[in-house]
Simulated scan of single mutants.
Amino acid sequence: MYEKRIFATGTVRRNRIELPNFIKKKKGKKASQKLNKGEYRWRVKDNVSFVVWQDTKEVLILSNVFHPQIERTTVNRTQKDGSNLAISCPLTVREYTKRMGGVDKFDQVKSTYSVSRRSKKWWRRIFYFLVDASITNAYLLYKQNKRASQLSHLEFHVALGRGLVGKYSSRKRRASSMANYVNRKKVLSENYQKAVGSVPLEKRFENVGTHMPVESPSYRRCKLCSTKTHDKRTKIMCRICAVPLCVVPCFANFHTQ
């Protein structure tokens, strides 16, 4: 039966425990003989390989993917005169160099709207990291789906939070007191911008045919076109979104733009 494994490759520091003896520095002795550029030494234990490769600086790599003796290749290095020189190296080094930027991109996206909080308990930090990693991976998969309407990173977080919370609330709140993180309409003037309302995008644009106009008990300001200088009131409201809208053209524009 096929055994599922996690494959990883990464750099380590020289002072990490349980590294091979030839890399450790003993009292009164040098840690290891300095290698020439392109040379490397390695050790393998079970399915984990350790490689010391000499580039401009010393590179130490642990991997459970590549075997340093069997899989070798070359990398190009630019010389002082501008020419390229092919230097021998284990395949581990080239593959690590090719993909190491992914960790930086992941950290950049994850830290933008992180849910992490400071805590003295170590397991909470791990929990927050796993939540952030799950959200980040979900957003990257969403961006690859060309058929989906493209939400920004913030809009994706808000839509995900609303989807997880659903209609649950520990206390009743008026719609006007809810925060408007997204869904802002176009600027009507240079010094005025008004929120469209607290209706989520996934609610406004989902099953538009079910959004039917109903009569409100009193006149209310239109959520789309009413401004401070131009007060527009209507008795028509959307049955699903529960916001007042003029019949023409605000009702159609609100659910399609």
Score class of each variant (00 low, 15 high):
124 R>M: 12
54 Q>S: 06
136 T>S: 14
38 G>C: 11
8 A>H: 11
124 R>S: 05
243 V>E: 02
100 M>Y: 09
249 P>E: 11
228 K>G: 11
162 R>T: 03
176 S>R: 13
166 G>V: 14
250 C>S: 07
63 S>F: 05
143 K>T: 14
21 N>D: 13
193 Q>V: 15
28 G>Y: 07
111 S>E: 13
8 A>T: 08
152 S>V: 05
156 F>C: 05
157 H>D: 03
73 T>N: 07
179 A>V: 15
185 K>D: 06
43 R>I: 10
154 L>A: 06
154 L>V: 09
88 S>Q: 04
168 Y>Q: 06
252 A>D: 11
118 R>S: 15
225 C>Y: 00
129 F>W: 10
129 F>N: 07
12 V>H: 02
13 R>I: 08
232 K>A: 02
16 R>A: 12
134 S>Y: 15
201 L>W: 02
195 A>Y: 10
52 V>W: 03
239 R>V: 11
57 K>H: 10
127 F>C: 12
23 I>E: 06
211 H>M: 06
103 V>S: 04
165 V>Q: 14
141 L>F: 09
223 K>H: 09
119 S>Y: 00
217 P>E: 01
201 L>R: 03
199 V>H: 01
163 G>V: 02
128 Y>N: 07
116 S>T: 05
218 S>D: 10
139 Y>S: 11
101 G>D: 08
56 T>Q: 05
104 D>I: 03
51 V>P: 02
115 V>F: 13
28 G>V: 00
4 K>V: 01
229 T>P: 00
38 G>S: 12
78 T>P: 15
68 P>R: 02
95 E>K: 09
109 V>Y: 15
85 L>S: 11
8 A>V: 09
228 K>N: 09
168 Y>R: 14
154 L>I: 10
50 F>M: 05
235 K>N: 12
157 H>A: 06
242 A>E: 13
104 D>C: 07
44 V>M: 04
57 K>D: 13
189 S>P: 02
162 R>L: 07
14 R>T: 15
191 N>D: 08
100 M>S: 06
5 R>I: 00
178 M>L: 14
212 M>H: 07
53 W>E: 08
37 K>D: 09
249 P>L: 12
190 E>K: 14
102 G>Y: 03
94 R>S: 15
171 R>Q: 13
239 R>F: 04
145 N>M: 06
253 N>G: 01
93 V>H: 04
152 S>G: 14
17 I>L: 15
1 M>K: 14
34 K>G: 13
143 K>V: 15
54 Q>G: 08
257 Q>T: 14
111 S>M: 13
234 T>R: 05
58 E>P: 03
170 S>P: 09
62 L>Q: 12
105 K>S: 01
100 M>T: 06
165 V>T: 03
120 K>D: 09
45 K>V: 10
29 K>V: 00
202 E>M: 01
10 G>D: 08
37 K>Y: 05
175 A>V: 04
109 V>P: 01
28 G>I: 01
210 T>D: 09
206 E>M: 00
226 S>P: 13
230 H>Q: 03
61 I>W: 01
222 C>T: 01
187 V>D: 01
83 S>P: 04
214 V>A: 00
25 K>A: 10
86 A>G: 03
133 A>V: 08
178 M>C: 10
198 S>I: 04
71 E>L: 03
198 S>F: 05
177 S>W: 03
86 A>Y: 02
134 S>N: 14
132 D>T: 04
238 C>I: 00
257 Q>D: 10
196 V>Q: 14
75 V>Y: 14
256 T>S: 10
